[in-house]
């Protein structure tokens, strides 16, 4: 069976040969990617029609309480309570207001409340691990949740994922759609993880790591992490209006 040392060599080869800001799709160290990545170059195209707009979400879609993953059941979940907050910005540094942010994650023991998760760590009856919110007028989002645990997976022998929270984001146009993972500072598993290391530029990898922020920490309640998320640029100019589409 493939060992961590084998994967380490493959990861190093990737780091030596490229510096890419987005994950390499052709990245065999992540074994599940081998038959699931396109082998032909992406076709460049200018966005048109619907692609210049993003789906619209509102308070009819998302309840306020959905941003707090610790109050979805009758009891308190196990683990360390945390606050995760930051701004969603587009590639030009503009806030992305009133847009949907969705998260999902493992519980404090590193177990997902998902049938396919066979890790023999305890499920937590008070933690489902799913949340949503809308950004405010300045692009801010904020979740209250539990520090997720690292967990094993079967990419290779003794493979472990660094602790992370999955994030799903929309921008102001459809081309900005992003699904990614937020990591926690100083995780010793970073160098070993082929999913994290599939981003071969070190500065770009840093963009996936939250920072501890004491101002976000609430006294005797929760630790605070700040994570700002920059999407790709919007293709729509400020002159574009709804009228032009009519």
């Amino acid at each position: 069976m493939t060992t961590q040392a084998d994967i380490d060599r493959e990861i190093q080869a990737g780091l030596d040969s490229s510096r890419e800001h987005q994950p390499r799709l052709d990245y065999p160290a992540y074994r599940s990617s081998i038959l699931r990545h396109p082998t032909k170059a992406l076709q460049p195209v200018d966005p048109e029609g619907v692609e210049l707009w993003a789906p619209c979400f509102g308070h009819s879609d998302v309840g306020e309480a959905e941003a707090d993953l610790t109050i979805q059941h009758s009891g308190e979940p196990q683990g360390s309570r945390i606050t995760v907050s930051g701004r969603v910005l587009d590639g030009d540094g503009r806030a992305v207001p009133h847009q949907l942010v969705e998260i999902w994650q493992a519980n404090a023991a590193g177990r997902y409340a998902h049938l396919r998760d066979q890790h023999p760590a305890p499920l937590d009856p008070n933690f489902s691990g799913q949340g949503r919110c809308l950004t405010d007028a300045d692009g801010w989002y904020k979740f209250t949740t539990i520090q997720p645990g690292p967990y094993p997976w079967r990419n290779h022998l003794n493979a472990w994922r660094p602790a992370h929270i999955h994030f799903s984001l929309f921008g102001t146009d459809f081309t900005q759609r992003l699904v990614t993972q937020m990591y926690f500072p100083g995780d010793p598993l970073f160098p070993l993880d082929p999913i994290f290391q599939s981003v071969t530029d070190p500065k770009a990898r840093e963009a996936l790591i939250a920072t501890y922020e004491h101002d976000l920490t609430s006294p005797e309640f929760s630790l605070g992490y700040r994570w700002d998320i920059v999407l790709t640029g919007s293709h729509r100019t400020p002159l574009d209006t709804d009228e032009e589409l009519a």
Partner: peptide, 18 residues
Amino acid sequence: MSAAPGQTVGPFFHLGLP
């Protein structure tokens, strides 16, 4: 500004997205 990298949805996205 540099865009944040994407990462796979992984095997457990059913928990958060559909």
